[in-house]
Simulated assay, not measured.
Amino acid sequence: MILDQPLKKVFETKPGKDSNLKSLLKSISWRIVGTLDTIIISFIITGQLTMALSIGSVEVVSKILLYYLHERVWESATKTKTADAEKEYARS
């Protein structure tokens, strides 16, 4: 609770908008969960822990990059629509 406001300033560039750092940290934490899931499923299918860990290690790097890019595209798309709406109200 004490660190709530200082951390909020670090993670938000504008009120209600996620920063690049927050998107990166979200992608890493989500990939930890996703990679554990992939390792477990791979182990169930192959029955080999080494194979499951190999699949999980390759998957984690590619998915972090893809999620980060996906998150930034969504942030960009949302920002554009908001800016357009503000211009419409300004004209009226």
Rank of each mutant, 00 (worst) to 15 (best):
S54P: 00
E59H: 06
E71Q: 07
E88Q: 09
D18S: 06
T78G: 00
E71A: 08
V10K: 05
E88K: 13
W74Y: 10
T80Q: 12
K26S: 10
T78A: 01
V60H: 02
L21P: 00
K26Y: 10
S29D: 10
Y67D: 05
F43W: 12
L7G: 01
N20G: 00
S57E: 03
A85Q: 13
S27I: 12
M51T: 15
K22N: 06
F43Q: 05
K81C: 04
L25A: 07
T82C: 00
S23I: 13
W74N: 09
I55E: 05
Y68S: 04
G56A: 09
I64E: 06
Q5W: 14
L53Q: 11
S19R: 09
L69R: 09
K81W: 06
A85W: 12
V73Y: 14
V73P: 05
A85T: 08
G56Q: 00
V33A: 09
K14C: 03
E71L: 11
K63S: 01
T13I: 13
G47Y: 12
E88R: 13
F11C: 01
V60A: 07
P6F: 02
R91I: 07
H70I: 15
A52F: 05
M1P: 05
V73A: 08
I44C: 07
M1C: 11
M51L: 15
A77Q: 12
K9M: 12
R91C: 00
L49N: 06
I2D: 04
K14L: 13
I44G: 03
E71S: 12
I55A: 02
K63V: 10
R31S: 10
A52E: 00
L24E: 03
F11Q: 03
I39L: 08
G47S: 06
Y68M: 02
L25R: 02
L53D: 02
L69E: 02
K22E: 02
I28C: 05
K26R: 15
L49H: 04
R72H: 03
E59L: 07
S42L: 08
K9I: 09
R72V: 09
S76Q: 14
E75Y: 08
K26C: 03
G16N: 11
L53H: 06
F11I: 02
S23N: 15
W30I: 11
L21A: 04
A77R: 09
K8Y: 11
Q5E: 14
V61Y: 07
P15Q: 08
V61T: 14
